[in-house]
């Protein structure tokens, strides 16, 4: 309850802050919407002319793209703009002000820069998913929808873990700019290609080491009833293990924080 009150206060402050700059406030909706439309355009150029990719139908692909977009939109709305500040806070010593306050610094960083500008993306992503499911023509049941929502949230957590791990690395190195770029490139790739296409080394890389390959693939497989029990277990275990590792790595990083000595 206390945490919820704190999150609501952070959200209020964030909105107040954004509303100070009217152009920036309204511009955020425009910028995020444009980004989304560009992603859709890129998808339609690549997949518009084919009926099936790697065994997936057009409907499944639409659900996949909508799912990735949904996970990304939750990320952008809730925590992306908070986490992205971490490397600079580590480098410049700004983390001091978070560490010395009686609230978990990671908790505050996660929720203090929510971006309401990305909320429309959630609706648009939902619309694409609904359209994909209608194209797919699969019958939907309440447990199937609940399971899908649960998987989207679990994969959002996995996405959070990956972002946190990469942004914790600056505790130990002088610059991690190359890692930021790598993350951006991997996300762009995995936004366009469903995980089922990966084989061999790529599968190991994108399913186990940097599991971007399963993030949108697994919920899509679940809702279209193509997820195997092994795939389900793998997804849940990956999210659990990466969460445990990410939190441990963050705490380990805090112990090694040098505070811009």
């Amino acid at each position: 309850m206390k945490n919820l009150r704190f999150i609501l206060l952070l959200l209020k402050l964030r909105l107040s802050h954004m509303m100070v700059f009217r152009l920036s406030f309204f511009g955020a909706f425009f910028a995020d919407g444009t980004l989304f439309l560009m992603q859709l355009l890129s998808f339609s150029v690549i997949y518009g002319q084919v009926d099936a990719i790697g065994g997936w139908s057009r409907g499944q692909m639409l659900v996949f793209v909508g799912t990735f977009s949904m996970i990304n939109a939750i990320n952008m709305t809730v925590y992306f703009f908070g986490l992205i500040n971490i490397p600079e806070l580590i480098r410049g010593g700004g983390l001091d002000l978070y560490i010395t306050k009686p609230v978990n610094p990671l908790f505050r960083l996660t929720f203090e820069n929510a971006d309401p500008g990305s909320v429309p993306l959630l609706c648009l992503s939902g619309a694409i998913i609904a359209y994909g499911l209608s194209v797919e023509g699969a019958p939907l049941t309440a447990p199937l929808i609940a399971g899908y929502v649960a998987f989207v949230l679990i994969m959002t957590l996995l996405y959070y873990d990956m972002e946190l791990i990469l942004r914790t690395i600056p505790f130990f190195v002088i610059s991690a700019a190359a890692i930021d770029r790598l993350e951006g490139d991997l996300l762009t790739l995995n936004f366009k290609i469903p995980g089922i296409i990966y084989k061999g080394g790529f599968k190991i890389l994108f399913y186990f080491i940097m599991p971007y390959g399963i993030m949108a693939t697994v919920p899509t497989q679940f809702v279209t009833k193509t997820l195997t029990p092994a795939g389900l277990v793998h997804a849940v275990c990956a999210a659990a293990l990466f969460t445990v590792f990410a939190l441990w790595f963050w705490r380990f990083g805090l112990k090694h924080y040098k505070s811009a000595m």
Partner: peptide, 12 residues
Amino acid sequence: TTLVKMLTGIIA
């Protein structure tokens, strides 16, 4: 400053 940072828990 390093001393103060240790006293406040910022660094170990």
